[in-house]
Design a protein around this nucleic acid. Structure first.
Lengths: 154, 154
DNA sequence: TGATTGTGTACTATTCTAGTCCTATTTAAA
DNA sequence: TTTAAATAGGACTAGAATAGTACACAATCA
C-alpha cells in the first residue's frame, strides 16, 4: 500500500469534523468523543496541527481549537505534510545525496515528475471539498481525472 | 513522507536496468553488480516480480531473468502493487470494514477519489517512460499536469 | 483560588522493513 | 553422469518507525 499513516488519516477526520462547525471552539475532549479517536491521540495530533499553523488554540477553561483559516484555504497536501513531512514517494526526491546506485540513476527525474503530479492533486483538494458529499454516480469524472502524464515524456 | 518502501524503489531501478537491454537474460548476480544493490536483496525482489508475472525466470546454468512483456506494457502502478499491495492511501480505501469511527466517516468517498487519481497517474506511466530522458526544461508541463480535481466536487 | 484546558516531553509496546542465510530444485555443459 | 550455475522458497534477525500513553507544567476563566 502506498501508505499514509493512521495519524494522517485521523487528522483529516478531525479537521473535517471541525470544518463542519467552524464557528466555535472545540475542546480536545469533545473532538475525541465525536470522532471515536482516543483522547491522547487526538491531543497529539492537535498539537502538531497547531504548530503547523493549521489550527489556533486557546488555553484555559472554555478553551479549545479552531481552524486557522477557512476550510477552502486548507489543502489536503498541507495536512499530509504536517504529519508525514514532504510529499515525495522516494527518498532521493527529497535529498539527492546518499543515492549510491553505481550506474546512473536516470529515473530520478521521472520520479520527481510523478511526485509533482501527486502533489498537485493533493494541493488542489481542500478541507471544504472533503466535507461535501461526493456524487460518484457522475460518470464524467472518470474521463476528467485522467492525466496525460505519459505524454509528457514524448 | 508519502512513503514508498526502499524495495519498491529498488524494483524500479532493477526493472529499468533490464528494460534497457531487453534482448537477453540477466542473472541476479549481474543485476546486483550493475545496480549496486546487494545480491540477496536483488534476489528477493526478483522473486516477487516473477511471482507477479512481471518477469520470466529461467533456471539452471545460463539462466536468468527477463521482462515478461515489453517495457511499454509494464506500468509503474503494477510494479508498486507487487511490492506494496494495492495502491491506496488509507486503510479504509482497501477494506471498508473495521473503520470504527463513531460519527459518519463521510470523507471516505473523497479519499477513494484521491486514490483513483493517483492510481491513474501511476497507471499511465510505464517502464518505457522511465528510461527515456526527461526534458524538465520544457515549461509546458507545469500547466499540463494540473488536475482539476477540486472541480469534481462542484 | 481552583477547575478546566492546552503544552511539552518522555516513554513503551508493537508492528513493519530491510536484509541475510540456508537448503532444495532445475538446467546446461563438461 | 557428474558438476557447476542459477533460481525458488522459506525462515530468521536486527533495527527502525509507528501508535499510543503518561505525566508534569502553563494558562485562562469564573
Amino acid at each position: 500500500m502506498l501508505r499514509l499513516s493512521k495519524l494522517t488519516d485521523y487528522a483529516t477526520v478531525i479537521l473535517s469534523f471541525m470544518a463542519r462547525d467552524n464557528t466555535q471552539l472545540h475542546a480536545a475532549m469533545e473532538i475525541a468523543s465525536a470522532t471515536g479517536i482516543a483522547l491522547p491521540t487526538v491531543s497529539k495530533i492537535l498539537k502538531l496541527l497547531v504548530n503547523a499553523k493549521l489550527l489556533i488554540s486557546t488555553r484555559g477553561a472554555k478553551g479549545g481549537y479552531a481552524l486557522a483559516r477557512a476550510p477552502e484555504k486548507i489543502s489536503i497536501a498541507a495536512v499530509i505534510s504536517v504529519l508525514e513531512g514532504p510529499i515525495a514517494l522516494t527518498e532521493c526526491s527529497i535529498s539527492h545525496q546518499g543515492c549510491e546506485q553505481a550506474s546512473g540513476c536516470d529515473i530520478r527525474d521521472s520520479w520527481s515528475l510523478i511526485n509533482q503530479t501527486i502533489h498537485n492533486a493533493l494541493e488542489a483538494l481542500t478541507l471544504a471539498d472533503m466535507i461535501k458529499p461526493v456524487q460518484l454516480q457522475n460518470p464524467a469524472w472518470k474521463q476528467e481525472i485522467l492525466i496525460p502524464i505519459a505524454s509528457l515524456y514524448r
